[in-house]
């Protein structure tokens, strides 16, 4: 499994994402630039320029027509994927830490940062796709169709539950909440992670009936979208920045590592920069992949489950295509189950 190294960012990666077809890989970093790459060979297709601050987050619409980004310059931008042209800018009073399209692409959520005088919010915009041929994409709503204010603890990440019915958010205090995606009312809240250990990532299964959270408390957890029941727990020895679910195989991939500013000696950082593979059902660690020279900030799995990519504080993206042993690996009880 020799990785392809993508060198296009000068600073720490914040988020990477495949489009639904899995042929493109998008990346954003602290260097304000948004890059798009061919996922198969790592060739850079282009960059989208315009943000004036670190870009924290991105998402691609399910039809790969629009791209959304959220940045430290307090903007959410919409881009025409094909032309690289910015078609819409929404301004906020604070930075935007997370954006995600609903499963059908008709809505976009954005998580805004809390700052003096402003509470953290989750806003939702209805998204239009113009004439269907790439024209009129700049025809978008100026105002959000929904605004959720996080009175208790600010949201750090958020995503859509199955059928776009729920918005699920991970909070700074380690709790997870479920909101009604129409009315914005909070339906559930559970302290999924240790109190006051921030949730850094949330990623959903392909049918969105469950999701995985990664927290600073060094664990990742799988929760049910329907009732936020904690189904699985994956303990590690380092603060986690990201967690991903692999289609095809029942694994999870975790990434993390102490940030340079949080440690006094380099030895404390050694060996903590590996992508860790766990079995999703049995919760055992089954392997690690080395490579990055700093914490892993973001992991994305190819939608067909054929590989994954990781983005690090070292400014590199490493794209891996899985080998045969990855697909062949199975617990004896799984084999037995298959035979039945």
């Amino acid at each position: 499994m020799r990785p392809i190294l993508l060198k296009g960012h000068e600073r720490s990666l914040n988020q990477i994402k495949y489009n639904r077809d899995g042929d493109l890989l998008f990346s954003v970093a602290k260097d304000k630039v948004l890059c798009v790459w061919f996922a198969a060979n790592g060739e850079r297709l282009g960059t989208y320029q315009g943000h004036q601050g670190a870009v924290w987050t991105l998402d691609v619409s399910p039809n790969t027509v629009l791209l959304a980004t959220g940045s430290a310059d307090n903007e959410v931008r919409l881009w025409n994927v094909k032309t690289g042209e910015c078609v819409k800018v929404w301004d906020f009073p604070t930075a935007v830490k997370r954006v995600e399209f609903s499963p059908d692409g008709s809505r976009l959520l954005a998580v805004t940062e809390k700052r003096m005088g402003y509470l953290g919010t989750i806003v939702v915009f209805d998204i239009c796709y113009g004439d269907g041929e790439g024209g009129d994409l700049n025809d978008q709503n100026d105002e959000p169709s929904l605004r959720i204010t996080c009175e208790e603890s600010k949201a750090t990440v958020a995503g859509w539950g199955y059928l776009g019915q729920y918005i699920i958010a991970g909070h700074e205090d380690g709790s997870v909440s479920q909101y009604d995606a129409k009315e914005g009312e909070q339906l559930e809240n559970v302290q999924a992670h240790e109190f006051d250990y921030q949730i850094n990532d949330i990623q959903f299964s392909s049918d969105r009936t469950y999701f995985i959270t990664a927290s600073k408390d060094k664990t990742a957890k799988i929760l049910s979208t329907r009732n936020l029941a904690i189904l699985k727990s994956f303990p590690s020895d380092t603060p986690l920045n990201t967690a991903a679910l692999t289609p095809k195989k029942d694994y999870v991939i975790l990434g993390g590592g102490q940030a340079a500013m949080d440690v006094t000696t380099t030895s404390a950082r050694q060996g903590k920069f590996e992508a860790r593979f766990y079995h999703r059902i049995f919760e055992d660690e089954i392997g690690r992949v080395k490579g990055h020279f700093g914490p892993l900030n973001t992991i994305a799995v190819h939608p067909a489950g054929t590989g994954y990519a990781s983005g690090g504080e070292d400014g590199y993206i490493r794209v891996h295509h899985f080998d045969k042993p990855y697909f062949d690996f199975m617990y004896e009880v799984e084999r037995e189950q298959m035979r039945r």
């Binding site: 639904r20 499963p103 059908d104 199955y162 059928l163 019915q165 392909s206 049918d207 009936t209 469950y210 049910s224 329907r226 289609p247 095809k248 195989k249 029942d250 939608p303 067909a304 489950g305």
Partner: peptide
């Protein structure tokens, strides 16, 4: 969960999200 999801999907009248997602299942 799959059963419940299918029930809710039909109740809401949302079309199936392509066969693609289903092919990805283990």
């Amino acid at each position: 969960e799959k059963e419940l999801l299918e029930e809710e999907r039909q109740a809401l009248g949302i079309p199936e999200e392509g066969g693609e997602a289903d092919r990805l299942k283990t």
